[in-house]
Amino acid sequence: MNDFMYHNPTKIEFGRAKENNIGQYIKEANIESVLLVYGTGSIKKNGLYERVIASLKNNGISYEELDGVVSNPLLSRVNDGIKIVKDKNIQAVLGVGGGSVADSA
């Protein structure tokens, strides 16, 4: 086995309206661009999408979108996201949704 170091600091915040701060958290991490990954539309129906986008914009975070993640997500859709990240030089991936979105992100 090759020697290596794995470092994965994690910050998890729970609570009401935390999505309004996502742009601030990303900015504090010195990230300027994200790939926003989400499912088939529930975040648009319930207003979460608008709040996340507003927070990103208010903090100067540029974003590209990968929508349409379904239950039992498809590898082909993940590959679409990889292509966007590479083509647009995206710094981070932001998954907004449930387990399949988290898996894909």
Rank of each mutant, 00 (worst) to 15 (best):
A54E: 15
D103L: 07
G60N: 15
D80K: 14
G81C: 15
V37R: 01
N72A: 08
S100F: 06
M5K: 15
Y25V: 02
V37Y: 07
G15D: 04
S55R: 13
Y6M: 15
R77L: 12
K86H: 03
G95V: 03
S71H: 06
E19C: 04
N20A: 06
N2S: 11
G41V: 02
G15Q: 12
D87Q: 14
R77F: 00
Y38I: 03
V78N: 03
K83T: 11
K57W: 02
K44R: 05
E28V: 00
A54D: 07
G99F: 06
N46E: 05
V96Q: 09
G99D: 10
K44M: 00
Q24E: 02
A105R: 07
N59Y: 08
V96F: 12
D80V: 12
L56D: 00
V34H: 07
G98C: 04
L56E: 01
G68N: 04
N46I: 10
I84R: 13
R77H: 12
S55E: 07
E32F: 07
Y6I: 14
A92C: 12
G98E: 01
Y6A: 05
Y38R: 00
S76Y: 09
S55D: 07
G97Q: 12
Y6K: 15
S62A: 03
S76N: 06
P9W: 13
K18N: 03
A17M: 08
T40R: 07
V37K: 04
N8T: 13
L66H: 04
H7P: 00
I90Y: 10
N8R: 14
Y63K: 12
E13P: 01
A54Q: 15
N30E: 10
Q24Y: 07
V34L: 07
G60Y: 15
I22A: 00
G41T: 02
Y63I: 09
K11T: 09
G98K: 08
V52L: 00
Y6F: 15
G97M: 08
L36D: 01
K44S: 02
G15E: 10
L48R: 09
F4I: 13
G95A: 10
S71P: 11
P73Y: 05
E65Q: 04
G41A: 05
G81N: 09
Y38F: 14
N58F: 10
F14I: 14
Y49P: 00
N2R: 15
E65T: 01
R16Y: 11
S71E: 13
L35H: 02
D103C: 02
E19D: 08
Y25N: 12
G41L: 06
I31G: 00
V101S: 05
N2H: 06
S62P: 05
L74A: 04
S33A: 05
N79H: 13
S33Y: 12
L66G: 02
N21Y: 13
Y49K: 04
F4K: 14
N46Y: 10
T10C: 09
E28Q: 03
K83H: 14
G95E: 11
Y49W: 08
S42R: 03
V101Y: 01
S55C: 04
I84Y: 06
E50S: 04
S42H: 11
G41Y: 03
D80P: 05
N59H: 15
V96K: 14
N20S: 12
N20I: 10
D3C: 05
G99H: 08
R77W: 08
G97C: 10
I31K: 05
A105Y: 12
A17C: 03
D87M: 08
